[in-house]
Simulated assay, not measured.
Amino acid sequence: MYFLTDELVFPPVDSANVEGLLAVGGDLSPERLLLAYQSGIFPWFDNDSIILWWSPDPRMILYPNEIKISKSMRKVIRDNKFTLTVNTCFKEVLEHCSSVPRAGQDGTWITEEMKNAYIELHKRGIATSYEVWEKDKLVGGLYGVDLGHIFCGESMFSLTSNASKFAFIKLAQELQAKEYNIIDCQLHTDHLESMGAKEISRKEFVKFLK
């Protein structure tokens, strides 16, 4: 196990264990977080844990041009049920992502320390939020770290059916237009797979980062 110090450095990602755990400790400074994402690493821990840094193999990603839009979602989009904004209420999206209950999960990994860290990244123009509105009510959204050619998705929430799907689809469409390589989804879920995401090797993922 690699224990981080004050030095701004991470071990090689291929030294992670079979579960993808690479290192522990360190801090959540903007400089360390940015280095982590640029290296294929992300923090994931809870209130009772020290900071844990992960680089799983395989890695779940989405090529923006491969987003799958179901027949029902096409109707939602056509009907103009939702509207989308970007970076208008980052803190609110963060709060919802940390507090909305999720099936099979007890509590949240988005600790207060994590919130403060991503708010600082947002102030620096690195962390981005997509907000979904139904009339004047915030009903869904997502946030992540924008590396300029790769968007590293962190979390999404939905207060009404299809709101987070709408945010994810709009994100993919916008990034496709900007010719981004991939959306980093980190870990496999059936939901992401149903929308077109797939697993690639960590080695292949790191190539995209470079």
Rank of each mutant, 00 (worst) to 15 (best):
H96V: 07
F10W: 09
A167D: 00
H96R: 13
D136C: 02
S98T: 04
V9T: 14
R74L: 02
A103R: 15
A163T: 04
L171A: 07
E92T: 15
K91W: 11
P11C: 14
A23L: 10
V132K: 11
V9W: 05
A197I: 01
D136S: 11
Q186W: 06
I182G: 00
L35I: 06
E66W: 10
H188G: 09
D14R: 15
P58E: 04
P30Y: 02
S49N: 14
V18E: 14
M156K: 07
A23S: 10
A23E: 00
L142T: 00
D6R: 00
P56A: 11
G25C: 03
S72G: 08
R124N: 12
F157C: 04
S15H: 15
T111A: 09
S55Q: 09
D46W: 01
E174T: 13
C152L: 05
K203P: 11
S99P: 13
T88V: 12
D57V: 02
T5W: 08
E92Y: 13
G196H: 00
Y37L: 01
N181I: 15
V76W: 12
T128Y: 11
D146W: 13
G20W: 03
E204G: 11
H122Y: 13
H191C: 05
A197W: 15
W44V: 04
F82S: 13
E120W: 03
K165S: 09
K91V: 12
A103I: 10
H188L: 02
P56N: 10
F42T: 08
L62Y: 00
T189L: 12
G25Y: 01
T88E: 15
T83D: 12
K210G: 06
K210P: 14
R202T: 05
N87S: 09
L147Y: 09
V100S: 13
T160L: 00
K178F: 08
K210I: 00
L4D: 09
T5Y: 02
F205Q: 07
L22G: 13
S70E: 14
Q173A: 09
L28A: 04
L94E: 00
D6A: 08
Y118M: 01
D106M: 08
T160F: 04
D48F: 13
E92W: 12
E7A: 12
Q176V: 04
D184G: 10
K137A: 06
K115L: 14
E154A: 00
D57C: 05
R78F: 02
N80L: 05
H122F: 04
R78W: 04
G40W: 02
Y2H: 14
T108V: 15
R78G: 12
I200Q: 03
L159P: 06
K178W: 11
V132T: 03
E179R: 14
T160Q: 13
N87E: 07
L171D: 05
W44F: 09
L52A: 11
F168T: 01
D48I: 03
G25I: 04
K75N: 06
Q105M: 01
G196S: 05
V24M: 12
R59K: 13
I182M: 13
G144N: 11
